[in-house]
Structure formats: structure tokens, C-alpha cells
Amino acid sequence: MSFAPSTTSVKLVLLGEAAVGKSSLVLRFVSNDFQENKEPTIGAAFLTQKCTVGDRTIKYEIWDTAGQERFASLAPMYYRNAQAALVVYDITKPASFIKARHWVKELHEQASKDITIALVGNKYDLVADDNDSDDSLRKVSMEEGKALAEEEGLLFFETSAKSSHNVNEVFVAIGSKIPEAKPVTEELGSRPGNVGRIDLSGPALRSNLSDCAC
């Protein structure tokens, strides 16, 4: 019957090379589901999910962007005013890690100054059983990921959208790094182009049914 005392809306954008599993991470986080053949995202997709972090409820407004290189010029439209970003790469594809590096650089140069970025190496399920053998599918070591994250001041996770390994953890970690904002209800009537917070004073009917399990 009652609601969490404060709900913070957080605009989050996913960036990364094509087919690294951006949409699959979102699908896992939002619907706790996985699809083997997820259609490529055209332009961008939008989803929301709530997540409880400590005593706060965070509502993620997720912009999941298309990964193909030629869409890169559209990315600023989506990361503008974003408070959080997931830069995703595929731990079996070195090129995707290079691309991730580029995205981090671009975000630091172009996005909001206080943006919280998480570096995410996806498809952990493909290497979960490997013991660092030579024929391992892993092409980007965890150390490389960690090093980049430390260097750039990012959160770092290796995840699997397929097995759901670490997926919720990413969003919880981002949530706990997002500075405590004023309850959104005080910011009525946001104007176009305003920071990505919106009127939550309406009836509490949402497009998503359940809070995430975290």
C-alpha cells in the first residue's frame, strides 16, 4: 500500500559495439529474461526499471542504443543529460574493448561532468568454466578491464546476461554511486531540455510491473 519514501529517476544510457549484449543486459535487468536471438536495436530502445538501493528507490530510465559504428553520431542525443552510463564490451572480442575505451573517452569529454560510468565486460558465461587454458574464448582479461576502470574512475563488472551473473549488481552499484537527489516530486513541471527528471506526482501506475529483485 505504501511507497518508498523517495524515488530518484536516473537516466542511464548503454553504449558499446554491436552485438556485445547491451539489449540483453537490459532485458535481463528489466524482465529477468534472456533471448538467444535478440533483434538488433535500431536507433535506440527505451525501458524503465525500479531498483531499491539502501533505503532509496531508483527508477532507471534506460536508453539502449544501437551498436553499429554508423550510429555513433546519434549517441550524443541519447547520453545528453544522462546521469549514468554502461559501457559494454564482449570479453571474447578484443575489438569491442577498444571501442569501449573510445566510448569512455567520449563520455568524459562530452557527457555531463558528474556522470557515473560502469565498464561492463559481458558474455561471462562463455568463459565461466575455463581455467585460463590457451583455447579459452576469453580475449580480454579481467585485469585489463579493471585497469581501464581504475585509470578512468569507472565501476567495473564482468557480467553474463545469459546466466544473469552480476547483472543486478551493476545497477545497484551505479545506484549507490548516484548522489542523493532531492525527491523528484519537488521538481514539478520540468521544462523540455531539462535534466532527465520528471514529474512523478501522477498516479503510481507504471509501465513496469515489478521492482527488480535486487
Binding site: 529517476s9 527505451f46 514529474d199 498516479p203
Partner: peptide
């Protein structure tokens, strides 16, 4: 009444 409902509908 909310922006994300609009985006959600379109999605």
C-alpha cells in the same frame, strides 16, 4: 502523465 510512459508506449 509521465515522459517515460510515452517512451515506453513507443517501445
Amino acid at each position: 502523465k509521465e515522459r517515460d510512459s510515452i517512451y515506453g508506449f513507443i517501445n
